[in-house]
Design a binder for these strands. Structure first.
Length: 460
RNA sequence: GUGAGUGUAGCUCAGUUGGUUAGAGCGCCAGACUGUGACUCUGGAUGUCGGGGGUUCAAAUCCCCUCACUCACCCCA
């Protein structure tokens, strides 16, 4: 098309009024629930330095970062090439990028403000950007709704972030048991132990975990094939699947944890992790996340900064996850000498909205004017403005029709925009300081004093 | 990144083996009805048929390229 495209860029969206109403509704619940858990809000810039962002997410993550090109002289200099004749690289052209998630900016903030509380609990609801290919429920600009607790290794913190997101989903109507949604939980160290037990090189850990994650989708044979394709010996692949099968058996965590208790040496790697998961499950049992938490030894997460328990929310009918999180005790330490442990959970706003949309979970959301004020040509604009002002002062949402075409057109417009009432202002009404209120859905109408209009409209 | 599909009016979509001036429904505009919308009736406006190139007497239709979007995979929230 030679005309300028009027669509937003790929993977990005405009939000018209009904979209905004639904998004605000969900964000409102999330913020309220997060605050009820004692989290305080944080907002950070859209743009971060690349030095902050790079190397935190793993190689795939770095690839998906949006980078901002240098401007003007600096760009020109970079394009000219280096004095020593070396090749110009990405890093010469840019040193800033759009934030990729909210966790890394949080880590930067915690490192930057020493005066924050020792146990800093913040929530953050802001857009993030990833240069991904869009798909159903996946966008290049999307909102994350994060809660994180910094400054403690206590599993109570892990349990609290799970409790917060579980409460959000329960309040939104996703259900109060595991049929509504599940929080899968696993442990990075446990995964690592299983991989190493199978005799797989730790360098291949990431690849192995990605394959493992698909066990439910492609089956044991499928995973094995994929592992071998990735260069892992067939024996090791088979061993890994055996280890995993054992991990799915009831009592696995308890057996593992017992090793930790009975042995001075680390007889079985992962024993401590198993003990932690048992403890976490026990703590969570007392809270809102209790019915939803399930141990899932196949759960792996792509982000490289996780160190302990990891989480992911799934629900029936959704391909990806509604949210995820985990413990990252080393991330903040990448920004400061202080090692500050932390754990967090992130809800994907669009994923939540997608499921709510498909299931028709939205309550009626008030939107647009309650009253369209119509007037006849003989009524001056200033008089109409005065009446509209009175109605607004009484608390109504009022739109004043700007022109004075036939009353029929004005009423038609009121119906088109979905206003429940039209208020008609003519010379009779003006003389009596009254308005004729017409209910658009039924056609009933009644003339009443301006002072009584607000109560009449509210009564429906 | 891989595979498949779809691009025709504001929206949802027809459009035959290539063949006059590209259609329908909804919506929009005007009127019947200038202090009353919805129902009805009458009339009206729409468009670079995604873009570019090619084949042909003739292309929305066939071929090539390109762009955009959708779905699945990959990965993720």
């Amino acid at each position: 098309m030679s005309q300028i495209s009027t669509k937003p860029p790929s993977g990005m969206r405009d939000f018209l009024a009904p979209d905004v109403a639904r998004r605000r509704h969900v964000i409102g619940v999330i913020a309220r629930v997060y605050e009820s858990f004692g989290f305080v809000p944080l907002e950070t810039p859209t743009i971060e330095n690349l030095s902050t962002l790079l190397g935190k997410y793993g190689p795939e993550g770095d690839q998906l970062l949006y980078r901002l090109l240098h401007r003007r002289e600096r760009l020109a200099r970079a394009l000219e090439g280096k004095p020593d004749g070396g090749k110009t690289t990405e890093l010469d052209l840019s040193d800033e990028g759009l934030r990729y998630d909210l966790t890394v900016p949080l880590a930067r903030v915690v490192a930057n403000y020493g005066e924050l509380p020792a146990f800093y609990k913040r929530y953050q609801i802001q857009p993030v950007w990833r240069a991904d290919r869009p798909a159903k429920g996946r966008f290049r600009e999307f909102f994350q709704c994060d809660v994180d607790i910094c400054g403690t290794k206590s599993l109570v913190a892990d349990a609290e972030v799970c409790g917060a997101v579980a409460t959000v989903l329960r309040e939104l109507g996703f259900g109060n048991d595991a049929n509504g949604f599940q929080i899968h939980v696993n442990h990075r160290e446990l995964l690592r132990a299983m991989v190493s037990e199978a005799g797989i090189d730790l360098a291949m850990e990431g690849q192995a975990l990605i394959a493992l994650d698909k066990l439910d989708k492609i089956g044991a044979d499928g995973v094995k094939t994929e592992l071998v394709e990735k260069g892992i010996a067939a024996e090791a692949a088979a061993k890994l699947l055996d280890v995993l099968a054992a991990a799915r058996a009831p009592g696995f965590l308890a057996a593992r944890a017992a090793d930790a208790a009975s042995s001075v040496d680390v007889a079985k790697p992962g024993a401590k992790a198993a003990a932690e998961l048992i403890e976490l499950l026990a703590i969570v049992a007392g809270g809102p996340a209790g019915p939803h938490l399930v141990f899932d030894p196949t759960l792996a997460r792509g982000l490289s900064y996780y160190t302990g328990p990891i989480f992911e929310i799934t629900c029936a009918g959704l391909a990806g996850s509604m949210g995820g999180g985990g413990r990252y005790d080393g991330l903040i330490g990448m920004f400061t000498k202080r090692q500050i442990p932390a754990v967090g959970f992130s809800l994907g706003l669009e994923r939540v909205l997608l499921v709510m949309e498909e299931r028709g979970m939205f309550p009626p959301l008030g939107l647009g004017p309650q009253v369209l004020l119509c007037r006849f040509p003989e009524i001056g604009a200033a008089q109409a403005v005065a009446v509209a002002t009175q109605l607004r002062a009484a608390g109504l949402r009022v739109e004043l029709f700007a022109d004075t075409p036939s009353l029929g057109k004005q009423l038609q417009y009121a119906a088109t925009i979905g206003a429940p009432f039209a208020a008609i202002l003519g010379s009779n009404e003006l003389a009596a300081q009254s308005l004729t209120l017409k209910k658009l859905t039924t056609g009933e109408q009644k003339t009443l004093p301006i002072a009584d209009v607000a109560a009449f409209v509210r009564a429906g």
